[in-house]
């Protein structure tokens, strides 16, 4: 460790790895944001439409025009809001977890860090081969660890 030659190499390695780290590019972040927005918007419209459609169907079946349509339309709107809020909460939680993982990464730069696949194995576990072996009961197998990130 005290050999200056190795120290120098360590620094250079770190510098090279830092240069390769994904810099959370703004462009892809904004595209992902657009995707999330589109997702919420479409979920919203579809839930209202499905409620409306169920109402129309029930009315036709039971001959109670327009009551089911009106009630289910209202329920559809409620479901739409519920979906939107649920999706937004989930995306929020995901973004928060990602931010925390990023700051943790910066605090302790992982030498084995693979730049392209930061999400697959974050806690320094190396996935062997393609991620799962045939041995189902092996507790050390990466499949069992539910990495929440």
């Amino acid at each position: 460790m005290s050999d200056p030659k190795f120290d120098d190499f360590k620094h250079r390695l770190e510098a090279a790895q830092n240069a390769h780290k994904p810099k959370a590019s703004k462009r892809s972040a904004s595209a992902a944001g657009m995707g999330a927005g589109m997702r919420i918007a479409i979920d919203f419209v579809v839930a209202v439409a499905v409620g409306f459609g169920i109402g129309l169907g029930l009315d036709r079946l039971l001959g109670t025009k327009p009551w089911f349509m009106l009630v289910m339309f209202a329920f559809g709107i409620a479901a739409a809001f519920r979906n939107a809020i649920r999706t937004a909460e989930k995306l929020d939680a995901e973004a928060k977890a990602r931010r925390e993982a990023e700051t943790a990464n910066q605090a302790a730069p992982d030498v084995n860090h693979l730049p392209a696949s930061a999400t697959v194995s974050e806690q320094g576990q190396k996935t062997h081969g393609l991620g799962w072996s045939d041995d189902e009961d092996d507790e050390n197998e990466p499949w069992i660890h539910e990495s929440k990130n």
Partner: peptide, 23 residues
């Protein structure tokens, strides 16, 4: 109130899944 809302939200899944990709 909750059950119809949840049922609609469950039934809207295939619609929103397909419409999102298509749109």
């Amino acid at each position: 109130i909750i059950i119809p809302i949840e049922v609609i939200s469950y039934l809207s899944r295939p619609m929103s899944l397909s419409v999102r990709l298509f749109a």
